[in-house]
């Protein structure tokens, strides 16, 4: 039972950190930096879902940008064309993304390894290409302009600082839900399905249902994040949802620590920060970024959170005992 206790303590520390994060706008006064933090927060929501999908059930997806795009476009179009308020539009966008998650989850349950990866890549590309070509609705390559701002309790969210709190609140809820899923019977069953489908099935687990449900969950996280993204940016176009974007999400999940909710948060913020910090270098910035990816997966196979746990395991356990 000790491990559960120390785990609880770790989680509590992590949540405190997230709450402490809420004071950030008082010392990050540079609006651009705040903007990047906000983006990182939105990406984190996508990565949380992806971590459940790819980390817990082992279904690697390189098409999360597709769900993200569906969330953005559905909520933006609902708000723009039918003047539906932000929260209802966002909820519908989340559900719509979840439906697409189910649709792609059905062929996906038969697939694994490279085949599954390719199916998800294909899905992401199909979404992007439809957005690009379905001009009457999506305005094609030009994209949508003037996506309405969200309203919270009658209060219109306008500035970066307002968005910071909206995104932080969403993030807290997202992290809580993801932690609950991961830490419950659902998460345990996901891991079992990932480790040995046959044995899980012999223990009465309906593996298809669990595999599809993970797709739906990850799609809903991405869809909700997308709806925030649209209103946050005000404009959007298919260029925001390329294959590279999906790859970025996957890198965040793996670098932070696949199969760790806390790792997903660290990965999303960490990689966004690294990528921004490297802007100073210009020129070969992304060469270094790529090298960091390669270096990390070779020398930190369990991601940043794995390194963290290793350090804790080596130094602190003795004290506690």
């Amino acid at each position: 039972m000790k491990s559960i206790m120390s785990r609880r303590r770790g989680l509590a520390a992590f949540l405190l950190l997230l709450i402490g994060y809420h004071f950030t706008p008082y010392f990050v006064t540079n609006l651009y930096h705040l903007h990047i933090l906000n983006l990182a927060g939105i990406y984190t929501l996508v990565v949380l879902g992806l971590n459940i999908l790819s980390g817990y059930t082992g279904q690697v997806s390189m098409g999360q940008a597709g769900f993200f795009a569906i969330g953005t476009y559905v909520s933006a179009l609902l708000m723009m064309n039918w003047s539906i308020p932000f929260w209802s539009a966002s909820a519908m966008a989340t559900v719509m993304a979840g439906l697409f998650g189910a649709v792609i989850g059905i062929p996906a349950m038969k697939l694994s390894g490279p085949y599954l990866v390719l199916a998800t890549v294909g899905f992401g590309e199909i979404v992007r290409l439809v957005l690009l070509n379905w001009t009457p609705v999506t305005k094609g390559a030009a994209g949508l302009v003037g996506i309405p701002l969200p309203t919270v309790l009658g209060f219109v969210v306008t500035t970066e600082k307002h968005f910071f709190y909206l995104i932080l609140a969403s993030l807290l809820v997202g992290v809580f839900i993801a932690l609950r899923i991961a830490d419950s019977k659902i998460g345990r069953t996901y891991r079992a399905v990932c480790e040995d489908e046959l044995a899980a099935e012999a223990m009465g687990v309906n593996i298809n249902r669990y595999k599809i449900s993970a797709f739906i969950i990850s799609a809903m996280f991405a869809g909700f994040a997308g709806s925030l993204f649209g209103s946050f940016s005000g404009v959007t176009s298919p260029d925001n949802f390329t294959f590279d974007e999906s790859v970025g999400f996957l890198c965040m999940s793996v670098i932070g620590g696949n199969r760790s909710i806390v790792g997903a948060v660290i990965g999303a913020f960490g990689l966004t920060a690294v990528s921004e910090a490297l802007r100073v270098i210009q020129g070969f910035r992304l060469v270094i970024y790529g090298s960091i990816l390669v270096f990390t997966v070779i020398f930190m196979p369990k991601g940043i959170i794995g390194l963290f746990r290793w350090i804790c395991g080596n130094f602190s356990v003795k004290e506690i005992d």
């Binding site: 345990r188 079992a192 040995d196 046959l198 044995a199």
Partner: peptide, 8 residues
């Protein structure tokens, strides 16, 4: 033996 590896 088909236990779920990596789990307690």
């Amino acid at each position: 033996i088909r236990l779920f590896k990596g789990m307690s």
